[in-house]
């Protein structure tokens, strides 16, 4: 059985939650607890990345419906930036696509240094030798 994993990234008062594995009757309570905690400080937007969800059942879909309601109650916008075929087929079959549109651009604010291309113009930093190394978009002063 695959492991169920959740991770959160914060950016400018918004949260991106990446979910990996099976979203079903077994993992639904964990997902709801986790996301409800993230909703407590009332983020502007909560983005769900469901592109690595390998299986979703009606209970998993129910969790998304509940979380959307909880988000609305707190004035948070719920967005989905990616959905696997396991997720999108259940959403479309149940006629809920209008409520869970997939908007890849919702993940844009979270394109952290590791996802951003290296800057075109670089200036020498203060301190160190002025030399630095860029690895995977991260800058290391030498």
């Amino acid at each position: 059985m695959e492991t169920f994993r959740m991770a959160a990234q914060h950016s400018d008062g918004s949260v991106l939650v990446t979910i990996t594995g099976e979203l079903d009757i077994a993992t639904r309570p964990e997902l709801c607890d986790y996301v409800d905690r993230l909703l407590r400080p009332r983020p502007g937007t909560l983005v769900l990345d469901l592109s690595e969800v390998t299986f979703m059942d009606a209970c998993g879909l129910g969790a998304l419906i509940i979380l959307r309601r909880h988000a609305t109650e707190r004035g948070t916008r719920l967005a989905i930036c990616g959905a696997s075929s396991a997720v999108s087929s259940v959403i479309s079959m149940t006629g809920l696509t209008p409520f869970f549109p997939v908007s890849p651009e919702a993940a844009a604010p979270f394109d952290g240094p590791q996802r951003r291309p290296p800057p075109e113009h670089v200036s020498t930093g203060t301190g160190g030798s002025g030399l630095y190394l860029i690895v995977g978009g991260n800058r290391f002063n030498l």
Binding site: A58, G62, I66
Partner: peptide
């Protein structure tokens, strides 16, 4: 659409 259950 707002009902979380009953789709099984």
């Amino acid at each position: 659409d707002h009902e979380p259950g009953g789709r099984g």
